[in-house]
Nucleic acid binder design. Structure first.
Length: 232
DNA sequence: ATGCTAATAT
DNA sequence: CATATTAGCA
């Protein structure tokens, strides 16, 4: 009972750059779920978690921070090494990323000095959290992943603005870091419990609401469906 | 009350 | 046009 009518072409990812054309996507062959950068860049975590992690994954109760660091290093090309931690090729060595960062940019510094003027800002408020790679260690992967651009032509700017009423905070910039957090939360929770509330709780972000999470989740699912359609 | 989908706004 | 927010509904 899955009727998919819309066909949005979402084939633009941050990974589209260094794609070895050695193995092209076998469209005329049996789709092998092993090398699909296009899909891999989306969110196979939740999908895998839903299919494979049903019982294969025991109760992985590791600290999200550790996992965050673990995952933050590779970027987004290692989604299938966590399931089977066997002795595979030791290509990826120990890469240490920057330490975990506290993401709290919602109710900080809300007191603005301009109280007299009507602050009915009709413009969108973007709350984002961007961290700069302080330590430029050796880049194992010469590929710009999430963090690589400062300004975008669309709308990825750093703007922190709080509203006065406290009920009109919109435009939450889903920074890659935040997205990563979201994905991690989903994997840790599993699709069974991948409910917005739980995700939000696990994320630890107190600025977001279930609607925010739901919206993002919706977009992700849409992208995933699009990709699946593309395969077929 | 929570979750999901659809519509709307930026 | 793409993405995020909000509203309505199950």
């Amino acid at each position: 009972m899955l009727a998919v009518s819309p066909l949005p072409n979402t084939s633009k990812d941050e990974n589209q750059g260094e794609m070895a054309s050695t193995f092209a996507i076998d469209t005329h062959e049996f789709p092998d779920f092993s090398d699909t950068n296009l899909l891999d860049s989306i969110d196979f975590d939740d999908l895998f978690a839903g299919i494979n992690d049903s019982d294969v994954l025991p109760d992985l109760e590791m600290d999200p921070e550790i996992l965050a660091e673990f995952s933050a290093g590779g970027g987004d090309q290692e989604s299938e090494m966590k399931a089977s931690a066997s002795v595979e090729k030791v290509e990826e060595n120990n890469f240490k990323k920057e330490e975990e960062d506290k993401v709290s940019s919602c109710g900080s510094g809300a007191a603005s000095g301009s109280a007299s003027g009507s602050n009915f800002s009709k413009e969108e408020e973007i709350v984002s959290k961007r961290e700069e790679p302080v330590s430029a260690s050796l880049k194992t992967l010469a590929k710009d992943g999430d963090k690589g651009r400062s300004k975008s032509s669309t709308q990825t700017k750093n703007n922190n603005n709080n509203n006065n009423q406290g009920k009109r905070k919109m435009k939450v910039d889903w920074t890659p870091e935040l997205h990563r957090r979201f994905v991690q939360a989903v994997e840790q929770l599993g699709v069974d419990k991948a409910v917005p509330s739980r995700i939000l709780e696990l994320m630890g972000i107190d600025c977001l609401t279930r609607h925010n999470i739901a919206s993002h989740l919706q977009v992700l699912i849409l992208s995933l469906i699009s990709c699946l359609i593309t395969i077929n």
